[in-house]
Amino acid sequence: MNSATFIQHMLNSLTLGSLYALVAIGYTMVYGILRLINFAHSEMFMLGAYFVFWGITLANLPWPVAMVIAIVVTATLGVVVDQVAYRPLRDAPRISALISSIGVSFFLQNVAIVFFQAIPREVYRPQWLENPIIMGGVRVLPLTLFVPLLSLALMLGLIWIVYRTKAGLGMRAISKDIETSYLMGVPVNRIIALTFGIGSALAAASGIMWALRYPQLQPIMGTIPGFKAFIAAVFGGIGSIQGAVIGGLALGFIEIMTVAFFPDLAGYRDAFAFVLLIAVLMFKPTGLLGERLEDKV
């Protein structure tokens, strides 16, 4: 393998990794606050991509406008899902909300099959992302630079919200101790809704960029990336945003590089992540950066 191919593989794993990272952030934020694995999160990824498709096809919107609208709509949908399907279960056993989220996931997926149909759809890609540029002898698609850069910008925005605004302070307070946050006057339900909104927006952004990278839309397209992003979140230490980013990048790197160096293993590609998950859960259940959660007796 020469250095040019290697750089290309590196860029590819950076692209894939940042897409995983964006989705993983949503999982980790919701888990950090509610201790809920939000299965429906992967459907936000899928719906974001579809909303762009319909914005362009039906309303003739230019691509950037369609993208912004799709992100806003998906974020709203994330808030609605929380209010309808999870909020009534806040005091129920934890697994109830998990089962509810599995139900929501299947519901959204099949609603997409009903309304968008199960046939795969071709995605429109802006021309300026397609023309390869030559950088120091390496042929690079602008797309492989655009995805990590936009992801980076979104993550910086998120970090600003979490660490520099009052709402972010609320999020951090709730994830430490939800009961005390109530008592201290944190508007807990509004903050949780905001968390779902932000998480869904990031998942939508990831789905939209995924559709540029692998230009085919299907109602089940969110499932596998969703699982992998969740695994990335566990790997990085669930509850930690930095951990989710590191986990996402690491998973993207492992996947691309294993297939690049051991092409025979390509058929097992979807199993890597699950093997990694089981290994992490067995040897270091808190992940790389996670805090230890004690069992309360």
Binding site: L36, F230, A271, I278
Partner: peptide, 28 residues
């Protein structure tokens, strides 16, 4: 043996992972 040491939802996701691995193996 290894998985049952995990708590509720982690066990759920790990067993789900096990089922997926079986499916990938069946394919390969």
């Amino acid at each position: 043996f290894p998985l049952l040491r995990l708590g509720d939802d982690y066990l759920g996701i790990a067993t789900l992972g096990f089922a997926e691995i079986i499916r990938v193996l069946a394919n390969n």
